[in-house]
Design a protein around this nucleic acid. Structure first.
Lengths: 269, 269
DNA sequence: CACAAAGTATCGCCCAGCGATACAATCGTA
DNA sequence: TACGATTGTATCGCTGGGCGATACTTTGTG
């Protein structure tokens, strides 16, 4: 179910503009669409599935898969039939992570923050209707998905996401909410746009955003936005704790001062 | 200097075989080479630099960059001039990480392991002359690079790498060593092939590999191999501690039983 | 066994994209 | 301020790379 959310977005089809743009290489786009086909998968994919997902025919899919395989981005699944992403992908991951100035500067600060709070600390980057985790410092108990770089959660209902929204103006916020799928992630997720705007306004005044069980039952999270040198939000720090360990007030009182100091240390890069 | 090591490999040029292979799409390969150009970078890259690294001319580079930018894989660096990898890359990272069966099964086990040992625990995947970190559970003190997914270290001098080698036969090991750049990472790195083979043999007998200060001064690491269902090594668990906290013997005695049990729990997937 | 579906390969035709070229903008330097 | 160098962007005609159709092999299923 973590994946069905993703399948809703990333339906990157070649648009009419692009088709008429002499600088836009369609074959490259098709190759990336093949790689992106796996966004919707939860196991190996056959050629036909890839072709369908990527919106190309089997023939083209086969040639692209062949190439991508030769280059080390895909491999056959030895167990079942079909194809899977392969290790070479991670090369680009490292390039991105280590060249991104926010991540560069954030990492030591986040480690320090986690050392003090002893709860999970995440760095997320703002990607329109979603925020994408780019660095994750685990605590004691974690789930599989809570450790994966690249995992994303909706902006509108995550603590960091709402902290980011609080640094945008009302029109921008409304625009993002309009384009978001306001589906609840848990029964406690706030999906009413008016209520969300209230929460965002609250975050504006307080300098942080709180989310109780909106992403994961039993979890409370506090988010603080990170801004670039033009004072635009580009990401957020998330601190997540268990409701069995913390009351809302205690969590806020403990986490906010430290997290906000950390965010200040990272911002403006 | 973490990057110069990488620049030695990944010089993936289009080979003669590939040029004659009707199924091999050169434009796709060129696009991936553009993305790979950043392996050697430590900041934004200009078109000319990208073109040079990717082995194509400025014109082609420009068109590919334009396309990749349109697709969200690259962006202009607003501060300096030039281009940088962009967030969309991480989508594929998540696909790889969450579809890889080894990582899927390893994550909870590794978290448990780190909870017990309270030192850094890494999962690496075997990639010929290198091992690539795919999951990282930090401890207290860490450096920037010690937290990044996708970072890789040489097989021949890392604890996990040598644990992997110990599951291969001598010919395979020699082959890998032959193709490795046996450059020391630290002054303590063992680079003599004979000495490495000794170490590998030792690992065969003991079931684990130790590396003292071969990757990072002041650090001791113990590696245990993970095998697939055909009993071939596909990765390793690394546990790393500080020499200011541990003697070699104490580290081995404490870590080996737990790490080896963890490896057994993960293997055969 | 037949049948379906998956993976692989070949081939001719045609248009996507290569290479050349040019232009605006931004520099560092004289 | 003028100059050359460099960077990012765009255009265009020719041509060979890759699309789509087709077919072959292999594997799994009723």
């Amino acid at each position: 179910m973590q994946r069905t959310m993703r399948s809703l977005l990333n339906q990157r089809v070649i648009t009419e503009n692009q088709r008429n743009d002499p600088l836009f290489l369609q074959s490259v786009a098709r190759a990336m669409q093949v790689l992106s086909a796996f966004h919707t998968a939860d196991g190996a994919m056959s050629l036909s599935e890839i072709a369908q997902q990527a919106g190309i025919d089997r023939s083209a899919a086969q040639r692209i898969v062949h190439t991508l395989r030769e280059l080390g981005y895909l491999k056959r699944d030895n167990e079942n039939s079909g194809f899977l992403p392969e290790l070479r992908i991670l090369d680009h991951t490292l390039d991105y992570l280590s060249l991104n100035p926010v991540i560069r500067n954030a990492t030591p600060v986040l480690l320090e923050l986690r050392r003090n709070i002893r709860e999970r600390v995440d760095l997320s980057l703002f990607d329109d209707t979603r925020v994408v985790y780019a660095a994750r410092m685990q605590s004691k108990r974690e789930t599989f998905f809570a450790t994966l770089v690249g995992h994303s959660v909706p902006t509108f209902c995550s603590s960091g996401g709402r902290a980011i929204l609080s640094r945008l103006n009302d029109n921008e916020v409304r625009d993002i909410l309009d384009r978001s799928d306001l589906n609840p992630v848990t029964p406690r997720t706030i999906t009413d746009p008016v209520a969300i705007l209230d929460k965002v306004q609250e975050a504006r005044e307080q300098g942080y955003a709180l989310a109780r069980e909106e992403i994961l039952i039993g979890e409370i999270a506090l988010g603080v936005a990170i801004t670039d040198k033009h004072d635009r939000p580009c990401g957020a720090i998330h601190v997540a704790g268990s409701l069995s360990d913390w009351t809302t007030d205690a969590f806020r009182d403990r986490v906010f001062p430290l997290a906000s100091e950390a965010a200040r240390a990272i911002s403006r890069f």
